[in-house]
């Protein structure tokens, strides 16, 4: 063998890794995602009386278990946003959109999701948005297709 290493052309191979996981949900996530399937947003009620969306399994500060969930309006306010001008194939929307952190009406915390908008100029912090439901829902965070501008 007289090959010197530098003379050998590189070899590449494309491949895909697939992870086909099914996850069990537990009591809180089960109720929240069942709610989404049924077209309803459920908030966690903390012992201090505040409402949290999305509902955590444990209270963020005290660590106490979340026991109560209750419905809230499927609308809220944008706390922060960014603009994706070139969505990847895995993005929730296939045209330019905003990622948003949405605080649901009367709740604490915020939920990350996509916001459908025609242009960056339509999006701003503090704007009102509402849930656009997916036409077919199975019990997944993607049952919320995205948020959309809520004109009152």
């Amino acid at each position: 063998m007289t090959d010197t290493l530098n003379e050998l052309p590189p070899l590449t191979q494309d491949f895909e890794l697939g992870f086909t996981y099914t996850r069990s949900l537990g009591p809180v996530l089960s109720r929240f995602l069942t709610g989404l399937r049924d077209g309803q947003v459920l908030a966690a009620r903390t012992r201090a009386g505040t409402l949290l969306v999305p509902p955590p399994e444990f209270e963020p500060v005290s660590g106490a278990s979340i026991k109560e969930l209750e419905p809230v309006a499927a609308e809220g306010t944008v706390l922060s946003w960014c603009w994706v001008s070139q969505p990847s194939s895995s993005a929730p929307l296939n045209k330019p959109f905003a990622w948003v952190l949405v605080r649901f009406e009367g709740c604490d915390g915020a939920m990350l999701h996509a916001l459908a908008a025609d242009a960056k100029e339509q999006v701003h912090t503090g704007m009102r948005v509402r849930v656009r439901w997916a036409p077919e829902r199975v019990g997944n965070v993607k049952d919320i297709a995205c948020f959309e501008v809520h004109k009152q």
């Binding site: 590449t12 494309d14 895909e16 890794l17 992870f19 996981y21 996850r23 996530l29 997944n140």
Partner: peptide, 15 residues
């Protein structure tokens, strides 16, 4: 109630 969630994920690489 929904008790399980499908979470498929596919990633593309070039080795």
């Amino acid at each position: 109630p929904v008790t399980m969630m499908q979470a498929p994920l596919y990633l593309q690489y070039r080795f």
